[in-house]
């Protein structure tokens, strides 16, 4: 069903294709949570300011609260429920969370960040960004800078950084 306010779309989430009709105003976050029952991504601010809603869109991290569901059609969406990554065990072992509300966003963001780093992307704290230089070692300063879009009010940052560095090896 499609009218002025609603569109029929197909969303591929964690390897499964779903047909659904959404209000055109619906964000990817709300479609995942309200229509598809994928409540792992959290709505912490709905303004792209906290990162709790972070998911992977074709392997790239995005804040799903600032992504319209209709714009995600055709992409491969991965939520925390579809993530299987050593980061998860590392977060548990290092106690990289307390309340856990930001955790799915932190982990999805870290998965996307590791891929960005592997692809050679520099960050704002990378000393040498010339094209021929290999990507910088993911030390604590690099990890902190690259994950700064994900807020954690409990203050699990040091443990998160330790978990990510351990996995990044």
């Amino acid at each position: 069903m499609t009218d002025d306010h609603r569109s029929g779309i197909s969303l591929r989430v964690n390897g499964v294709t779903h047909r659904l009709t959404v209000d055109n105003r619906t964000t990817l976050l709300d479609a995942l949570r309200e229509d598809l029952g994928r409540t792992g991504p959290k709505k912490g601010c709905d303004h792209g300011q906290c990162g709790a809603c972070t998911v992977l869109l074709d392997g790239r991290r995005v804040v799903s609260c600032l992504t319209l569901a209709v714009a995600a059609e055709g992409a491969e969406v991965t939520t925390i429920e579809g993530v299987e990554h050593p980061l998860q065990a590392a977060f548990v072992a290092h106690d990289g969370f307390q309340c856990g509300f930001c955790t799915s966003g932190q982990i999805c963001s870290a998965v996307g960040m590791l891929a960005e780093h592997a692809a050679g992307w520099p960050s704002a704290v990378t000393a040498d960004v010339s094209p021929d230089t290999p990507p910088p070692t993911l030390d604590a300063a690099e990890v902190r800078e690259r994950l700064s879009g994900n807020l954690c009010r409990c203050g699990a940052y040091p443990a998160i950084v330790r978990a990510v560095i351990e996995v990044a090896g």
Partner: peptide, 21 residues
């Protein structure tokens, strides 16, 4: 000891108030 609910929190299974169907 790691948290009892640790696995639920890193897999998205932990349910908060707005998550309950």
């Amino acid at each position: 000891r790691p948290r009892i609910e640790g696995k639920a929190k890193v897999t998205g299974a932990a349910r908060y108030a707005a998550d309950v169907p």
